[in-house]
């Protein structure tokens, strides 16, 4: 594997991209989960699929668009979707969660239309849906690197505000925190990460990389900082393990990454059960 990694550029691209996604997706996931917004990632991934399908459709019918990286289309749709979610939440103040199924079904609807217009399911699209070890180009890697650096800088500077708004939004507002601006930056960041993660994990499974490692860490973390650390650790284990197994077994990495993340969750739940029984002497 290491020999192949040194030899093949596509493998290097896939692994470095995977490591970056394994770092930033769980970090954002921590804030998403504690704010009880886990389904936002699903809604945004479905609208991103619409952007990918739209880009592929453009490329099919207009040759000048054929060289355009579909990641850009996905990013535009995802960010637009995130803004629509924020808008819908302010429209349905007492039913904020409605924004998620609205955007999710709208995303699927758009995708189905674009896929139908492109004359069905293409091999390209399969890679976007479930991830691919071989599809990550050097350009994809550079986009992921740029966005990852932006996310890390954003979280570094917004950490204090995000923590307070996640724990007690009302208290944050009484302190004069610009809660709307922070929430807006956060959701746009989430949208961008979902769009760039699709090459590795796939659109349909990207939300799980944001939620499964966090679901594991939240069971055992003693502090918020430790939860972030453990989420990243579990995310990286899932990505590395998933990519290696996908390479050797010739499977879509989205599936293997998510199955390993789910396996880690299972181990954590078992560990907690054993610990509880041991402590209670049962």
């Amino acid at each position: 594997m290491i020999e192949s990694l040194m030899k093949y550029e596509f493998l290097q691209n896939a692994f470095i991209t995977g490591l970056l996604i394994g770092l930033i997706a769980p970090i954002l996931g921590v804030f998403i989960v504690v704010r009880k917004q886990a389904l936002i990632a699903d809604a945004l991934s479905h609208i991103t699929l619409g952007g990918i399908a739209f880009s592929l459709l453009l490329g099919k019918f207009w040759s000048s668009f054929s060289t355009l990286n579909p990641v850009y289309g996905g990013m535009v749709f995802s960010v637009t979707g995130s803004l629509l979610i924020e808008k819908l939440r302010s429209v349905y103040k007492h039913y904020e969660e409605l924004a998620i199924p609205i955007i999710m079904s709208f995303g699927i609807g758009l995708s189905v239309i674009f896929i139908s217009m492109a004359d069905g399911f293409t091999t390209d699209l399969f890679g976007y849906l479930f991830g691919s070890v071989s599809a990550v180009s050097r350009v994809d890697l550079l986009i992921v690197l740029g966005i990852s650096m932006m996310v890390i800088v954003t979280i570094f500077f917004l950490y204090k505000g995000l923590f307070l708004l996640s724990f007690d939004e009302e208290h944050g507002r009484t302190m004069g925190l610009p809660s709307k601006t922070i929430n807006f930056i956060f959701i746009v960041t989430v949208a961008l990460v979902i769009a760039i993660s699709m090459r590795i994990v796939g659109i349909l499974l990207v939300s799980s990389l944001m939620t499964l490692p966090v679901a594991s860490s939240i069971r055992i973390a003693k502090s918020f900082k430790q939860m972030i650390f453990l989420s990243v650790l579990f995310g990286e284990i899932a990505v590395i393990g998933g990519l290696i197994s996908a390479y050797y077994l010739d499977l879509a990495p989205g599936g293997t990454i998510v199955v390993i993340a789910a396996f880690i969750l299972l181990l954590v739940i078992l560990y907690k059960n054993v610990q509880y029984k041991f402590q209670s002497g049962r």
């Binding site: 504690v34 204090k160 724990f167 302190m175 939240i218 003693k222 502090s223 430790q226």
Partner: peptide
């Protein structure tokens, strides 16, 4: 999953 330290510190945000 926040400690008392993290919660009190957030008062200095």
């Amino acid at each position: 999953p926040a400690t008392v330290f993290e919660v009190v510190r957030s008062g200095l945000t």
